[in-house]
Simulated assay, not measured.
Amino acid sequence: MAMTVVLLVAVVALPLSLLLGKAIWVTTSCYYLTPARIRRILASQGVHGPPARFLVGNLRDVSALVAESTAADMSSLSHDIVGRLLPHYVLWSKMFGE
């Protein structure tokens, strides 16, 4: 009876531990290792940008800049809409270079 319980626990625990390990690896890779690798490659090419926060990156900054730029009406009709739709690109290009 005790051997059956131990075998049953082993059969259930192994797949669960493998699943948990895979989830931990994917999360770590997605949210830390890949962004760190990309930042290192870009820095080696001379491309720098604003520091990113863990898990959210620069989303808060981008959304605040977009909300600020789209809050008012456009002063004139123009095809140059980069400053209105991508204000973070314009600001960061001025700060960090193109």
Rank of each mutant, 00 (worst) to 15 (best):
I41M: 08
N58D: 03
A43S: 14
H79F: 08
R60P: 03
D73M: 10
P35D: 01
A64H: 08
L42P: 00
N58I: 01
L55I: 05
P51G: 04
A64L: 07
R60W: 01
Y31P: 00
G46L: 10
R37P: 04
L55G: 04
Q45T: 02
N58L: 01
L33I: 06
P51R: 03
S76H: 10
L59A: 15
T34N: 02
H79C: 11
C30H: 11
S78F: 11
S63N: 12
S69Y: 04
A67N: 13
D80A: 13
V56Y: 00
R37W: 10
A52Y: 01
P51N: 10
G57F: 00
D80E: 15
L65T: 05
L65C: 08
A72M: 15
F54C: 07
S75F: 03
V47I: 15
T28S: 13
A52R: 04
M74R: 14
L55D: 05
D73L: 15
T34K: 01
S78E: 04
R39T: 01
N58K: 02
H79K: 09
V66P: 00
L55K: 00
T34R: 00
L42Q: 05
A36N: 11
R40G: 08
L77T: 12
A64V: 09
R60I: 00
A67V: 04
A64Q: 13
S78D: 14
I41W: 11
P50D: 09
Q45N: 09
G49E: 00
C30F: 09
H48N: 06
L77N: 11
V62L: 07
R37A: 10
L77G: 11
G46R: 09
C30W: 04
S29Q: 13
M74F: 11
L77E: 13
G46S: 11
A72N: 14
A72Q: 15
V66R: 12
G49D: 01
A67F: 03
A52H: 01
R37M: 09
L33M: 09
H79R: 08
L59I: 10
S29I: 06
S75V: 07
A72G: 09
S78N: 12
H79V: 07
I41V: 13
L59N: 15
L59M: 14
A72W: 05
I41A: 15
S76N: 10
I41R: 13
I38K: 12
Y31N: 00
S78V: 07
A71Y: 06
M74H: 07
F54K: 08
T34F: 01
C30L: 14
M74C: 12
R37L: 15
S44D: 15
D73G: 09
P50E: 11
S29Y: 06
S69R: 15
F54G: 04
R40D: 08
D61Q: 12
V66Q: 13
Y32H: 12
